[in-house]
Design a binder for these strands. Structure first.
Lengths: 125, 125
DNA sequence: CAAGTATTTCAAATTATCTTAAAACATCTT
DNA sequence: AAGATGTTTTAAGATAATTTGAAATACTTG
């Protein structure tokens, strides 16, 4: 990979000090990993799903309880639960009629990151 | 907020031990904050934008350099840069003709979270 | 100020995500 | 087995995000 014809001199110097473009781009995660990171963020990019995640961070819950918390129809809720489930943020166990949902360890980790970041989430839009 | 008519007994006990549904739901971030968190995740839910973020984590860059790294048309690149800029993940300074982009502190924080999580990003889909 | 380079904006076309209501499944109760 | 309850699936339409290419802006240099 070659540098563009004319780029600012100080930037070019920085890049060369780091061993050139190649060695910088080597540090970028693989397309596969970027894809996975993208999908996880996608799963957490919806207010409904975040509300579910934050609730489950405090308390495991059957779907009927989540229905009450969110005021959503079952089918809609189920759609969002599936997205969180498929990406590995939540899991569930059956208990009679009920499906009892809870966060996976990875789900907890993500919500804790959100909480840690919340101080920095001041809107600058 | 009242509990649904029939929920599993052990779940009901857990909820009561935490002071009931109200005190649990009080811990969920406000709709405003959830909205902001959702938008940030949305901004990071695209492979192109993640690639830009990870590159800028290593090295500030003008748009023409990012164009080379990503092999995108300027207009498309500019669209994605705007999304990252608007949410406060990246910033830029003009230097002559060039716009030199770099991560904000918050952007760095987010990418560091991604890196920390990468160990856990094993696909279970 | 005209021409060149770097970057952004715009609107139309495309694609992805979300919502809705109806139907299907699973488990429990009688 | 039939009815009730809890949950998921499906397919259609509605909404939102992305892509594309052309035109616009901004700065620089001769």
């Amino acid at each position: 990979m070659v540098l563009p014809d004319n780029i600012p001199a100080d930037m070019e110097r920085e890049i060369n000090e780091k061993g050139g473009l190649e060695s910088i781009t080597l540090k970028i995660p693989s397309r596969e990993l970027l894809n996975r990171i993208a999908k996880i963020h996608q799963a957490l990019s919806d207010v409904i799903r975040l509300k579910i995640m934050f609730f489950l961070y405090e308390q495991r819950a059957c779907v009927c309880l989540l229905r009450q918390i969110t005021s959503l129809a079952y089918s809609k809720l189920s759609y969002h639960l599936k997205i969180l489930r498929d990406i590995g943020l939540i899991t569930y166990e059956k208990s009679g009629n009920y499906a009892i949902y809870s966060l996976t360890d990875f789900g907890k980790f993500c919500i804790e990151n959100c909480i840690a970041a919340s101080g920095d989430y001041r809107g600058e839009e």
